[in-house]
Design a binder for these strands. Sequence first.
DNA 1: CTTGACAAACTAATATTATTAGTCTATAGT
DNA 2: ACTATAGACTAATAATATTAGTTTGTCAAG
Lengths: 191, 191
Amino acid sequence: MARSAGITQERVVTVAAELADAHGLAALTLAQVAARLGVKLPSLYNHVDGLPGLQRELAVLGIRELGTCLRDAAVGKAGDDAVLAVAQAYRAYVLAHPGRYAATVRAPAPDDAELQALSAWVVGVVVTVLAPYELGEAGTIHAVRGLRSIAHGFATLEQAGGFGLALDRDTSFLRLLRAFLAGLRATGSAP
Amino acid sequence: MARSAGITQERVVTVAAELADAHGLAALTLAQVAARLGVKLPSLYNHVDGLPGLQRELAVLGIRELGTCLRDAAVGKAGDDAVLAVAQAYRAYVLAHPGRYAATVRAPAPDDAELQALSAWVVGVVVTVLAPYELGEAGTIHAVRGLRSIAHGFATLEQAGGFGLALDRDTSFLRLLRAFLAGLRATGSAP
DNA sequence: CTTGACAAACTAATATTATTAGTCTATAGT
DNA sequence: ACTATAGACTAATAATATTAGTTTGTCAAG
């Protein structure tokens, strides 16, 4: 080791995640992270590969946490209950950790195997929850995309302050999910 | 006038919109805009109020264009056809102009009457399209939020490269919309 | 116990960018 | 013709990211 100040990549990423959640991913700077850790800015380069590297680590953290939340939300549930729980967990994660969630949305580099694998794992969790609907292979993927669009779209709009009117947002989300599920059963594998 | 180089706010915003669409809103810099216009950076301050001001102008442009697209998409259509057309137009706009669309998502300042009014106008367009479903006042707002979440969520995920698998995205989107519409009729104003 | 290699901090230097202050000049309106 | 000004400019400042090179504890081998 060295004249070390006990900094690790994990600590850097944790502090960055807190800052990104609090002030937005766009406002995250290495200077802030360094100040929070009590080191000079260039020292961070010993632990992360610059700002792009740090954002990639944030994405890894976010996808891992998100996947865990979704999986945990589904245990002991089935059918519509499970789908509702997963979607609610998705929304809750976005609202609780908007910064790290934003990091997960950027498409991973084509050669980033770890990130690709994590994404596939999360998709797998949702596929499992949708299995009982017997939508077929393609139909299931369409449904995963639909459910993810709904959860992502609602939560990110909500987080951005996009729902101005004073109408309960929990109700809006629940209605949207129920409509989607009813439609899934009704339309089956139509067009 | 002055030893003018023919710069106007409109030209500044137009160039900024092109750059934001091409390279992402986050990568938009005043330096780039100035270079593209053939002026020095500080000269832009005669036309826009710094980077935040420019982004606000981009939001105005984006909401105005988006609202126009949605309105135009709905003329001569009714019921499901109209809703589908509006949603497709929403997605098409996001994909065609991701930079200016991203600018529209940030919540407008509470004292920004122009932006608030434009947002309300766009909501009004969607409310009109949903009127025939007779969902009631609150039900209509819930449905507007749902439809917007679907279009925003799908389009932004797609634009970010979030749909990796080789499965037709047009079909995914159409299925999602049909499921939502079928669910709207089925569940009516349930929970 | 010494010593040498290295990890991890540092300082210093450079490049971008945004912003503000103040200057200059061509032109529009009197 | 004169003048006020809009709209360009230069200059200066501050924040950030990045790279290069330096220093210094600490760990482990001899």
